[in-house]
Design a protein around this nucleic acid. Structure first.
Lengths: 195, 195
DNA sequence: CACGTTTTTTGACATTACGTCAAGGAACAA
DNA sequence: TTGTTCCTTGACGTAATGTCAAAAAACGTG
């Protein structure tokens, strides 16, 4: 035998590609990307089968990292409704700032690419999925224990998730501020569910 | 002088491009598109400066047409909250079925293209904007008249819009059904506002 | 009906981007 | 050294985009 096969360079390129793509956008040509990464174009094609894969890999890396960091805050809340609201705020934070464009780009790419790449989304959504099961279960328990008004927990969670996705779309598109809407949803929809 | 310049062919090409793009997707090459339209490639470039413009023009046409048709139903409702709910259902219908992918593609394209093309969105959103002013005004009036619980009308409208956008994202991404969530939002958030 | 003008079409070209391939380095174990 | 694996790259083939200038079609006017 010889060298132990680590594919270290591939991961390194993906890491660096994150910055470049975030700065320059996904329209960047492979030549320019390779240039920015300090390698020749065929080198990229050696590590990744196609340009789309480079973008995917880089974005998944970014997504998972950010999501894991931000989702940690959710765990702090006790009451299921508060936890749901924390989740809402966490997604907000996850989507906030310059990252918003990158995150939404994954959705854009996934949509444009169509049926292909369930992976890129699943990777990014995996972190949220764990929260979903947890929060839905807590709401169910809360209803049984009388701490939460009777309702459809899955629909409740989906509504919160949809609100965040939709607000992101609106923010990217037309600059709608998120805070007033979040406040409204909290007061009109979430807080009344507490008991 | 000679011919009066009507740009008729351009509009015709845009109309036909709608069908082809809807059937084949936006990844279609210009050569294939020109082929499907029964013209040579440079002909397209004569009528549209670039391929992106063809797609934009075609999608805007589709968007406006669909939106106008669907938004007509909203006008039927009397009570501001019912009208808001009708708006929610209308957007749902607008996004439903095979069109969903096309509509969402505009968002994908707009996002990917970044800062450019506020036009394509504004064209599609213009129909909704008119409704927005109308509905927000009615809610305000409803609050003054005591028919609606006090709340932030702009935030309320934004929440409904966000819910629809977000549900569309979720539906395209992971197949979340829309009806249960709409029902939940109606019962928990909208109906309680009536008085 | 010719003639001139404008719109429209298209063949040929230039440019750019993507992906393949085969020939080489570089690192490392035996 | 030798063999193996990882990594790099120059050269090539192919496809897509956009430009240009010349021809064709449409149309009003004398």
């Amino acid at each position: 035998m010889a060298r132990p096969a680590e594919h270290e360079k591939r991961a390194e390129l993906a890491r660096d590609a994150v910055e470049v793509l975030q700065r320059e956008g996904v329209e960047l040509s492979m030549a320019a990307l390779a240039d920015a990464l300090g390698v020749k174009r065929p080198t990229l094609l050696y590590h990744f089968p196609t340009k789309a894969h480079i973008v995917e890999t880089a974005l998944v890396e970014l997504l998972v990292e950010q999501a894991a960091f931000v989702m940690a805050r959710v765990a702090a809340e006790e009451h299921p409704i508060d936890r749901l609201y924390a989740h809402m705020r966490a997604i907000h934070a996850f989507h906030h700032g310059r990252e918003a464009r990158v995150v939404f780009l994954t959705q854009a790419i996934a949509t444009t690419a169509g049926a292909r790449l369930p992976d890129i989304l699943q990777a990014g959504e995996a972190v949220f999925e764990a929260q979903r099961h947890d929060i839905v279960a807590r709401i169910r328990a809360g209803i049984r224990a009388g701490a939460v008004q009777p309702c459809n927990p899955e629909a409740l969670f989906a509504a919160v998730r949809a609100l965040n996705d939709g607000l992101l779309v609106q923010r990217v598109m037309s600059g709608t501020p998120l805070e007033p809407v979040h406040a409204f949803v909290w007061e009109q929809m979430l807080a009344p569910l507490k008991r």
